[in-house]
Design a protein around this nucleic acid. Structure first.
Length: 320
DNA sequence: TTCCAGGGGTAGA
DNA sequence: TCTACCCATGGA
């Protein structure tokens, strides 16, 4: 969080926050950077560039955030309307601002990646204009659960699993909200998932992922696994990767995805999307071994994931 | 009905 | 380290 943020009290039950964004900053490109934008409790309206989500900021305290861009191109800001019951304390405002800064990666230095794009030239130049901040969750626990929900399932299945998980085990939002009964609950805490009974978790229809997610929740809830510390560790990426692979349900794809969400881009998440895209773009549609497919981005060094991500994004634009 | 999806765990070699 | 097989669920 920066000291440039400020809190403005307005109507009862609603507060407005603002926080500085880095230059260059692409709000819509950040929110819409990947599927996380539409996994509940996230909601994204690209037509008017409004991102929202329910967020649990303390025990029994759930607020609803409406996040938009503000400021100017050389002094960009992110604006947050917080709907809450009662008043929002300065400590709570700080918690909200910290969550928003983490979600949008406002403190991440992507200059080295943008330098590489500038050197690559051509279509890569488009990435220099603030791209590469891939949306993430306020907590690594939420990111880890969602990652497990992306494995061996089509995207529609992932959205359904997360939606049911939030609806069944997440904490409801503030009662004083503007009348919108469709507002999502907050993302479930590790404790709520760990304490859930079998029938409730069965109703979420997580399939064989259920025991993995329950075990992860139990390990985090009991303190056996400290994901937040892992996320801030200065340890070498390979060491962090080993710890991620020790989580049941997280394999090479999941570990690479979580490393990306932690701001480490050394590993590629090779899944069906990756294989399909690389085969089309670089091998004339021919199936190739994963090792060969991975070599495509070897020149990107510790920025491999972002190199692929931007290539894919650009490929979608080009109809590849 | 069959296949497979933004894969991963496990056993056995 | 590599391979084969199995794992729930649901869309195509």
């Amino acid at each position: 969080m920066t000291s440039s943020g400020h809190l403005e009290a307005c109507a009862v039950g609603s507060s407005r926050l603002s926080t500085a964004a880095p230059v260059p900053f692409d709000f819509e490109g950040t929110i819409g950077s990947h599927g996380w934008a539409v996994l509940e409790p996230n909601r994204w309206r690209p037509e008017d560039a409004v991102f929202s989500r329910s967020e649990r900021i303390a025990a029994g305290r759930v607020v609803h955030l409406t996040i938009t861009s503000g400021g100017s191109w050389d002094r960009p800001r992110v604006r947050v309307t917080v709907d809450h019951g009662g008043t929002l304390s300065r400590t709570e405002a700080s918690t909200v601002r910290r969550s928003v800064r983490r979600m949008l990666r406002l403190d991440e230095d992507l200059a080295p990646f943008h330098d590489l794009c500038r050197q690559a030239g051509g279509r890569w130049l488009a990435a220099c204009d603030g791209r590469g901040r891939l949306l993430r969750s306020p907590s690594l626990f939420e990111d880890a659960v969602k990652t497990i929900c992306t494995t061996n399932v089509q995207w529609g299945g992932t959205k359904g699993m997360v939606r049911r998980l939030v609806a069944s085990l997440g904490e409801p939002g503030p009662l004083s909200m503007p009348a919108d009964p469709k507002l999502p609950n907050a993302f479930p805490t590790p404790e709520s998932i760990a304490a859930s009974d079998g029938a409730t978790l069965d109703s979420v229809r997580l399939g064989y992922r259920a025991p993995y997610i329950r075990e992860l929740a139990e390990r985090v809830a009991t303190g056996e696994l400290d994901l937040d510390s892992l996320g801030h560790a200065s340890a070498p990426t390979e060491e962090v990767r080993r710890e991620l692979l020790a989580i049941k349900g997280i394999g090479s794809y999941g570990a690479a995805t979580l490393l990306m969400l932690m701001g480490r881009y050394d590993y590629l998440a090779i899944d069906s999307v990756y294989r399909s895209f690389v085969q089309r773009r670089y091998f004339g549609g021919r199936a190739v071994p994963d090792a060969e497919a991975a070599d495509v981005y070897s020149d990107w060094g510790r920025w491999k994931y972002l190199g692929f991500w931007f290539d894919l994004w650009q490929g979608v634009e080009d109809g590849v």
